[in-house]
Every structure is written in structure tokens, then in C-alpha cells.
Nucleic acid binder design. Structure first.
Lengths: 229, 229
DNA sequence: CGGCGGCTTGATCGGTCTCAAGTACGGTGG
DNA sequence: CCACCGTACTTGAGACCGATCAAGCCGCCG
């Protein structure tokens, strides 16, 4: 209920063909193959797309909206694995089971593709096989960078997160974050309070502005970048 | 612990002295191909095997000794990506550059394999192609588990590390750790002092014994396991 | 206008880091 | 075999950062 429509300010550009930026979760040619055999499906805010341990029958491409993948830990905490924005592909497993769960963050449209078709194709098409491999390798690089984030200070984590989101949303300065503070916290391994405080600090340092809670204006990239490694 | 046995579904060709357990970084059939075309090389303690950013001309299989991969961060800290024990394969990149550096922890013998040969072979052999993909996927799962470790308490991290090493060294109770406290600290995102103190605590709690600094006797697995999620 | 969910802010607590000694161990040379 | 050394490890005291607990605020919608 009461969702502000989270997708509206995103530079969606593409309803059809991959016009997405060349950021990591994207495998360009793969995306091409996918659009040929995928079917678009609507998912409501916070609805599950798949669950951890379920058979990985499909893979997915975000058309509009945004998606989070996550695990629930033994103590009840949630760790977000990644966020996916329009153009991004997710849910491709090498094994038979999904390793994480996936949910729509806001109301979203997702292209759903049968995995078996793609895998079968890959045994005949060595080029496609290589693309699948490359896709997994990119996911690997992403999770490795994510890991490197978790050993840094709260300011560094948040600054890095903002820069990454700015890059992926391909904005010059102003962006509308699709995810809540809690989502950001669970991605960065912090509490919601620490994320909130840190954003306030960054605003105080004139690195960013926060006209609304979800809208972020990047004022001084150098300050943010200084917090990277 | 995370390990489902990764090798069992694969047709195994490998007759050689792979005495290693079937833990994650290992791809058995891949290993078979490798032993055919690889050449053993000695590396002295703390010597570099390859550096971050270098051309990924080779991949490697540990024959004896142990290896660490790592990155040096902007502030000078070191994050260890993974440890590799006899039987483990490492250094296989999808792209052209190594993403991390690799060093021998102690004096080691490493099998060195030309990557180009393997890649070329994979374009003709869809089975090998799938094995390469599977190998990368396992590395992905490993780094994801590593990431989940970093959001937990020091005790949980150390306990989990010990259980994993015990599994990989296939010991029932007593093991000799190949790596220093500093290595463990840099793997777990802790300081050397915290690792040391935590081991002492675990000993006090009768979960382990430390006859020497590097030798660990697992006394009470339940206590260690309780610290997992 | 009232209520609710998401966000911010404040005060305190606790775990890990930092800085600083102290100790055990393995290797080397006498 | 022992004395010595350097390296690796342990232990202690105090500081600091982020978590926790607890209000309060804002925007949105009925």
C-alpha cells in the first residue's frame, strides 16, 4: 500500500532493446538471446520472485522497477546480495537451485526466461556458453567488490554505495533511490540508524543533498570518492 | 557447512594422486585435464605467484604447501580472498587479468597450466566449457559465504573459519594451520589481536585446544557450530 | 485531521581496534 | 647442547565506532 511509485525517475529508456549501461550484471549478447524467448510478468511491491533453495527453472531480466536478492541468516538478520535495476539480469544459476531469494522492491515488470532452453542452447553454441560463463564471472566480481565494502567504515560503505547507484542509474547528480533505508542497511551490513546518520553526515559535509529521503543529489563527488580504495 | 560435494556428478577421468578432499575450489574433471598439460613448479614461502592486474596467462593447482590470494586496499590493509590447499585450483580468470594477487604461504609446489590451451579446448568441448563455468560458479558461492562471514561477530567468524579449515584439511580433530594469525585476520576482516584473543576464548570455552600456536584440536564441534547460521 | 510507515535523532552500551608490553617458539651460530 | 636472536603470538588498558534502545518527526493517505 501507499507506495510511491518507485520506478518513475529511473532512466528507464528501454522497454525493448537493451539500452542499458555496461555495468556489471549485464551480459549484452545474453540479453539479446533472452529477449527473444522471455515473457514479461508483473510483480507487486515486496512480492517474492523466487525463494532460496527453489528449483532455478527461470532467469530474469528487469524491465521496470527494481529487485533485491537476499538471505535470511540464523539470527533473523537479512543480508542483501544485490540490487537489480532495469536492464539487469538476475537469477541465473549454474546449479539447480537458487542460492538466494529474490523480491520486487517496488511494483516491477520482469522478463522471465526458461533456463533449460538457454542451457541446452549453450551446449551447441560455444559463443553463448562463453557468455554464460562471463555472466557468472561478472557476478563474481560484483560480490567480491561487495565483500571489500564490508570491511570498511560506515562512511566509506555508504559513499561507495551512492557512487555505485549513481553510476548504475546513469545520473549526473540527482537520483531517486528505489530501495528503503533498511534495504541499504542490509546490503551494507549496517543498521538503519547508522545509514541514516551517515547520510546526514555526508549532507553536513556538503557531499550530498537530501531534498527528500529517497532523493539524493550528488554535490561533491570528490568527497565521496576520497572514501574509496 | 556449506559443502555439498561438488564433484560427484562429474565423470571423473583423473587417476593421478589427487589426494585432496572434494571441497569447493576443486573441479575434478578439470583437474584431470590440468594434470595432463601442467608443469610442477616450486615457490618459496611468501613468494609471489602472480600479481593483481597481470595477464592471466596461467592457472594453477596446488600440489603441496598452501596459497593465499589477496588485494591491498587504498589504506594499506590487506584483504585475503581465499586460501588454497593441496588439490585446489586457483588463478583461473574469465577475463584477461588476474583480479587478485597470489602468494605461496609456505614453501609450495604448484602445477602451472597454460590458460590459452584450456580455453581453446573449451570452444570445441562443451563439456569442458561447462566445467569451467561450474568452476567459476563454485568460486562465486565461496566468496558469497565469505561475505556472509564478514557481517558476523568475531567469535562466529573464527569458529566458522576453523570448521571450514577442518573440513578442507579432512581432519577429525587435530590440524596444523598453514597460515599465520595475520593471514587469518586479513581473511576474516579482523585484527591479529582479535583473532588471537578469540582463539583463547574458544579454548577457555573448551571448544578447542591449542597445543602450539598453529596446531588446533577441535574438542567440541557443537560449540563451534552453534556459532554458525 | 488522524494514523501509520519510514526516516531521523539522541543517549547509552558493548565489541573490536589501537597502542603497548610481554612471552613462546624456531632457527642459527658458537 | 646451549645461548641468542628475530618473528610470531598473546595479553592488557583504553579509545572509538557502530549497535541498541527510545523518542520524535515527516510525508502520505484515508
Amino acid at each position: 500500500m501507499s507506495t510511491r511509485n518507485p520506478a518513475q525517475l529511473m532512466p528507464i529508456a528501454n522497454s525493448q532493446r537493451t539500452r542499458a549501461p555496461a555495468h556489471l550484471p549485464q551480459a549484452h549478447d545474453l540479453a539479446g538471446s533472452i529477449e527473444l524467448i522471455g515473457a514479461p510478468m508483473p510483480f507487486a511491491r515486496n512480492s517474492e520472485i523466487y525463494g532460496e533453495g527453489e528449483a532455478a527453472e527461470f532467469l530474469y531480466k528487469v524491465v521496470s522497477g527494481a529487485v533485491r536478492t537476499y538471505k535470511i541468516l540464523g539470527d533473523g538478520r537479512r543480508q542483501i546480495g544485490d540490487f537489480y535495476l532495469p536492464g539487469d539480469i538476475f537469477g541465473l544459476e549454474v546449479g539447480d537451485e537458487h542460492q538466494l531469494s529474490a523480491e520486487a522492491i517496488g511494483d516491477s515488470t520482469i522478463l522471465v526466461i526458461k533456463r533449460s532452453a538457454l542451457i541446452a542452447l549453450a551446449t551447441r553454441d560455444s559463443d553463448l556458453a562463453r557468455q554464460l560463463w562471463t555472466f557468472t564471472a561478472r557476478a563474481f566480481d560484483r560480490v567480491q567488490n561487495h565483500l571489500l565494502l564490508l570491511i570498511r567504515s560506515a562512511q566509506e560503505r555508504v559513499a561507495c554505495f551512492l557512487l555505485e547507484m549513481a553510476g548504475r542509474l546513469q545520473v549526473t547528480d540527482t537520483m531517486e533511490l528505489p530501495m528503503s533505508r533498511q534495504d541499504i542497511a542490509d546490503y551494507l551490513g549496517l543498521t538503519i540508524e547508522t545509514v541514516s546518520r551517515t547520510l546526514t553526515q555526508l549532507e553536513t559535509q556538503a557531499a550530498i543533498e537530501l531534498p527528500t529521503a529517497r532523493r539524493v543529489v550528488v554535490r561533491n563527488r570528490a568527497v565521496l570518492r576520497r572514501l574509496n580504495g
